[in-house]
């Protein structure tokens, strides 16, 4: 059997991070094939519930990425997102989830290399942690 590959949900904002991922692609940058991308209008649209639900559905990790603070297409969506993530963190800690399973980052449309680096890093972090078992039984 081949080596276990982490499955990571990447929730990317339409204006910056998704375009950053696109740039990484057209620039032929290499990064692990561990992410499944969901494109959203703005990181402010992310209800922390989406993150809980994806972990419960069997994802090993979640990456949420939006525009850099100050660069939000909708002026302040990512500031609000940041507050919501700050609330989510202690909650994840409380239920015993390893903090590195859920990561946030700010990636602009011009940062294809940064996107590749972020994905490589979260994949390595989660590979180290192994499959997520705190919210779901792996069969």
């Amino acid at each position: 059997m081949s080596e276990w590959q982490p499955r990571i949900l990447a929730i990317l904002c339409n204006w910056c991070s998704y375009a950053g991922a696109d740039l990484a692609g057209v620039s032929r940058m290499q990064y692990p094939p561990s992410i499944r991308v969901v494109r959203i209008p703005c990181s402010g649209r992310v209800d922390p519930l989406f993150i809980m639900k994806s972990l419960q559905s069997g994802f090993d990790g979640v990456l949420v990425s939006g525009c850099h603070p100050g660069d939000c297409h909708y002026i302040s969506g990512n500031y609000v997102a940041r507050r919501k993530f700050a609330v989510l963190k202690p909650l994840l800690e409380f239920i015993g989830l390893e903090p590195n399973r859920v990561q946030f980052s700010w990636i602009s449309a011009g940062e294809g290399d940064r996107f590749a680096k972020v994905v490589t890093k979260i994949t390595e972090d989660i590979r180290e942690l192994g499959p997520a078992t705190r919210l779901v039984k792996k069969t």
């Binding site: 500031y79 919501k84 946030f104 980052s105």
Partner: peptide, 15 residues
């Protein structure tokens, strides 16, 4: 309410 407001510079550890 904390999630209705924000500061521009905060939570550098997130992202």
């Amino acid at each position: 309410i904390p999630v209705m407001i924000f500061k521009e510079e905060e939570f550098p550890e997130l992202g």
